[in-house]
């Protein structure tokens, strides 16, 4: 048994977001420091084959924000298939000192509380992925200091996976099942889903799977044997032995609201397209469990999830856009 290790999100901020923040700061926010709603998105984890070495190179486990992140959810452009929208809280500080001295624990706990309340009170699955972004925009120098937090609850005892580890989902449930799930995910995209073999009279159809939203947990699995109940999620992690960050809060959710579901059979969904014949599916499958602890679920567990900076420290990141925004620097590039 090994402890399940989750791949943390890494933030990917499109330059257009900083342009939009600049506009917002000057025209709308001015000196206001109030928190604003913001949206981000993540997609399935990707890896590419290096053409020269033939090795698989994993790309990041990215959470992306762009210039339309400030927009109302309704006006947002449609996301590509297998992408998931995440809501968060954005807070911009007026000075670097305020940014440094802000009570980050309080902000973090506030977001974690929102997630916790979602789990405890409403059972609203869409709240599981909330994130926090604090910024300071040095508009004169075109520098943007920022710090993301993706709160996730620490499970005690930790989730562990059996000795088989994370396996190819193709081996476990077969290509037919995966293409069945793929088709249904295309028509009803969701961050988390339930899957079970379609109950049918004739055995020939037994490989076909059907999916349902997490909210129908009880009814959907009512007549399904435990070893056929599968919990799936869109996995932004490309690493074969590490599921992505979103699974963490989902497991907490299941432990609190459905403690009988243990062990949990997890499908890490990583396929955008049906692979060409001969190519393997990328999705992973694993059976995770945790020894059930005593009276749990009344107190909010500890949460972690501040993003580290490129040096691996608990510190903010900085985007220096002077080379791409400063008019005098731009003039130098002109031919």
């Amino acid at each position: 048994m090994t402890v399940v290790q989750f791949t943390p999100f890494s933030s990917l901020v499109q330059p257009a977001f900083w342009h939009e923040l600049t506009r917002l700061k000057i025209d709308v926010l001015k000196l206001s420091e109030e928190s604003l709603p913001i949206t981000a998105s993540y997609s399935v984890g990707r890896s590419i084959t290096d053409r020269e070495t033939g090795q698989e190179v994993a790309l990041g486990c990215n959470l992306t924000i762009s210039d339309d992140s400030f927009n109302d959810t309704k006006t947002l452009q449609r996301l590509p298939a297998n992408s998931v929208r995440v809501n968060g809280t954005f807070k911009n500080f007026n000075t670097i000192e305020e940014f440094k001295e802000a009570d980050k624990s309080a902000l973090f706990n506030q977001t974690a509380d929102e997630i916790w309340n979602g789990i405890k009170a409403t059972g609203d699955i869409s709240l599981l992925n909330r994130f926090l972004l604090i910024t300071f925009a040095d508009l004169k120098k075109y520098r943007y200091y920022y710090w993301f937090a993706f709160p996730a609850f620490v499970a005690k005892p930790a989730w562990s996976i059996d000795d088989a580890g994370w396996k190819s989902a193709e081996e476990h449930i077969g290509r037919d099942a995966l293409s069945g799930i793929h088709t249904q995910l295309q028509s009803s995209p969701s961050a988390y889903f339930l899957a079970r073999p379609r109950s049918s009279e004739d055995k020939t159809d037994s490989h076909n799977y059907e999916i349902a939203p997490i909210s129908s947990l009880d009814s959907f699995f009512a007549n399904t044997p435990a070893e056929q109940q599968i919990i799936g999620f869109v996995d932004p992690s490309p690493l074969p032995q590490n599921p992505g960050w979103p699974l963490r809060n989902l497991l907490t959710f299941l432990r609190i609201r459905k403690s009988t579901l243990n062990p949990i059979r997890v499908l890490c969904w990583r396929d955008v397209d049906i692979p060409a014949s001969g190519k393997p599916w990328k999705s992973r499958f694993g059976i995770v469990q945790a020894s059930v602890s005593e009276a749990e679920g009344d107190v909010r567990p500890a949460a972690v999830g501040w993003e580290k900076n490129p040096q691996g420290k608990m510190a903010p990141r900085m985007a220096d856009l002077a080379p791409m925004m400063d008019p005098s620097r731009l003039a130098d590039q002109a031919v």
């Binding site: 090795q55 698989e56 190179v57 994993a58 990041g60 690493l239 074969p240 032995q241 590490n242």
Partner: peptide, 9 residues
């Protein structure tokens, strides 16, 4: 982190 067969960027 531990990678099996795939290189992390």
């Amino acid at each position: 982190g531990p990678t099996g067969g795939v290189i992390d960027a």
